[in-house]
Every structure is written in structure tokens, then in C-alpha cells.
């Protein structure tokens, strides 16, 4: 009887959180899945059931080019994992060695994370400006570009994607650095000292002691980097809004256009569902990869 009452108490205490979780997280996903099966403009009560028609159109339409947007996001995710994170890790390891001005550098590298994305977008728009932007001006100053020539960093479809990724990666280096720095700092100094007494160099200490110790944090950083890349929107919206010629489209920019410019709520919802599914898939995949390494990956 007492056990039953305890369970009821636990349930009652958990109920508000459960209701919030279901109401704010689960039900919108379920609603999105439901809407994705309809052709609906989001305003009228008329909803035409089309089954998986929206999913099929998403990948087959030459005008929407969702597959291209997905490819762009995956490139961004790969760059995040293989460029941004190693750089962040290097910074975290360097700062974790109690160097002079540690707090100052920590603040400097973290600063872009605190600045509004719109402000960062405007800043990089100026940097990339073909007429007076600092990059083109520097190239002209160095004689690498003619006086009247310009490189269209955001206007050339072959360059725009890379140009958009630079500030995206730059902005979050500090974020990952801070996560990893916290991990580096939590590694026991005794472990480091023991390794050094065994004759390990600084690099070997990092490689064989520090990095394996902070693997759970690296895993979290990888999950954030990949899912963040899939969800990227704001900076791309400010810099190019998906242009030129859809060269910098990512799933979120296309989704917003379909939802709120084309009034295609069904199709937009299908894209939202696809994004959620991909984020879950990659989070699970990354978790699986890191789990495998924990068991068999030790040398």
C-alpha cells in the first residue's frame, strides 16, 4: 500500500514536467507529421490528404532542390566536425595548460558566441562587400586583384557556399572551445603528472591522457556541431538568403520559404519532419560510434 502511494507521489511530481515535455516537444512533432501528409495552405480549413506526396515532391522537385540543400548542410556538418572541432580542441588544450592570459583568451575566443547572429551577418556582409570589403581591398592592395576587379564572395555560386561557411564556423569555435576547455580542466593533474613521470611529451599527454578522458564531451560537441549544421538558418538568411541561384540553400531556408512564402504548410511540415528525423539519426549514430570506441577502441 505504501509502495503504491510512493509511486503515485512520484508520478504526481513528474506529471508537470511530463505535460510540458509532451505539450512543447512531442505534440508539435506529431502535429508536423500529421500536417506533412496533407496539401494545405495553413490558412483555409480545406486540407487535402496526399499521403507521402510531400515527401516525394521534396526530393524530386527541380525547383525546390531539397536534396541540394541537404548536401550543403552535410558539407557544413563535415566541416564543423573535421575543421571547427579540431581547432576548438587545439585552443582548449592550449588554454588548459594554465598559460598566461588564459581568462583573457577564453573571453576573446568566446566573444563571437555572445554576439547576435544578425550582427555577425552584417559584419561579414561588409567584409565580403565586392566594392569596399576588407578582403577584396586587401587583394587589390597586394596586387592580386585589378583596381576595378572584384571577387563576388557571396554572389558567385561557386564561392558563396564556402564564404557562408567561414563565419558560421568562426562563430561557434568559441562555443565548442569552452565545452572542451571545461573537460580539459576537469582532467586530474595527477594523471598528467604520472604520464610525464613515465616520460610522455606534452603532445603524448594530450593524445593518450587528456583526449580519451574528455571523450564524452567531444561526443556532445560532435552532436551539437552536426545537428547545429543541419538546423543552420539565421546567418545564411542574413548573408545570402539561400542565393545566388540556391547555391547556399540549407533545409531550414527552404522550409521557411515553403511554409511562409509559398503558403505550403504540408510541404514545409514534411521538411520539418525530415530535419527532426535527420537530427535524431545523427545523434544516435554519433552516440553509437563513440560507444563502440569506448569498448574496443583502446590501444
Amino acid at each position: 500500500m505504501k509502495k503504491k502511494s510512493q509511486k503515485l507521489t512520484i508520478f504526481l511530481f513528474l506529471l508537470p514536467a511530463l505535460l510540458l515535455f509532451v505539450g512543447l516537444l512531442i505534440s508539435p512533432i506529431i502535429m508536423s507529421i500529421y500536417y506533412s501528409l496533407f496539401e494545405w495552405n495553413g490558412m483555409n480549413s480545406e486540407m487535402n490528404f496526399i499521403g507521402l506526396g510531400n515527401y516525394s515532391e521534396m526530393f524530386s522537385s527541380d525547383l525546390i532542390r531539397f536534396g541540394n540543400a541537404l548536401k550543403n548542410s552535410l558539407i557544413l556538418a563535415a566541416l564543423s566536425v573535421f575543421l571547427q572541432l579540431p581547432f576548438s580542441l587545439a585552443l582548449a588544450l592550449a588554454l588548459g595548460k594554465k598559460i598566461k592570459g588564459e581568462r583573457f583568451f577564453l573571453s576573446v575566443y568566446f566573444m563571437p558566441v555572445l554576439i547576435s547572429t544578425v550582427v555577425i551577418g552584417q559584419l561579414w556582409l561588409k567584409i565580403y562587400n565586392p566594392d569596399y570589403g576588407i578582403i577584396n581591398s586587401a587583394l587589390r592592395g597586394l596586387g592580386l586583384l585589378g583596381e576595378k576587379d572584384s571577387i563576388l564572395w557571396l554572389g558567385d555560386k561557386d564561392l558563396a557556399l564556402g564564404a557562408v561557411f567561414v563565419p558560421t564556423l568562426w562563430q561557434y569555435v568559441g562555443y565548442h572551445m569552452l565545452l572542451l576547455y571545461a573537460g580539459v580542466k576537469s582532467v586530474s593533474p595527477e594523471l598528467r603528472e604520472a604520464a610525464k613521470l613515465d616520460g610522455a611529451t606534452e603532445g603524448q599527454v594530450n593524445r593518450y591522457v587528456v583526449i580519451p578522458s574528455i571523450k564524452p564531451i567531444i561526443k556532445v560537441s560532435v552532436i551539437f556541431a552536426v545537428t547545429g549544421s543541419l538546423k543552420s538558418y539565421d546567418l545564411i538568411y542574413v548573408l545570402t538568403n539561400g542565393g545566388p541561384l540556391q547555391a547556399t540553400e540549407v533545409p531550414s531556408t527552404i522550409m521557411i520559404k515553403q511554409l511562409f512564402l509559398s503558403n505550403r504548410y504540408g510541404l514545409g511540415s514534411a521538411m520539418a519532419v525530415m530535419l527532426i528525423a535527420l537530427c535524431f539519426f545523427f545523434a544516435i549514430l554519433i552516440g553509437f560510434i563513440f560507444k563502440e570506441r569506448d569498448i574496443y577502441g583502446k590501444k
Binding site: M43, K257, L259, F260
Partner: peptide, 13 residues
């Protein structure tokens, strides 16, 4: 201007 279009449509929807 450009940001207003999706905003008002979202509000109406």
C-alpha cells in the same frame, strides 16, 4: 520588408 512577408503569413496562419 523581406522579413515581414513570412512574419505576417505565419501570424495569419
Amino acid at each position: 520588408n523581406e522579413a515581414y512577408k513570412p512574419k505576417i503569413k505565419a501570424a495569419v496562419a
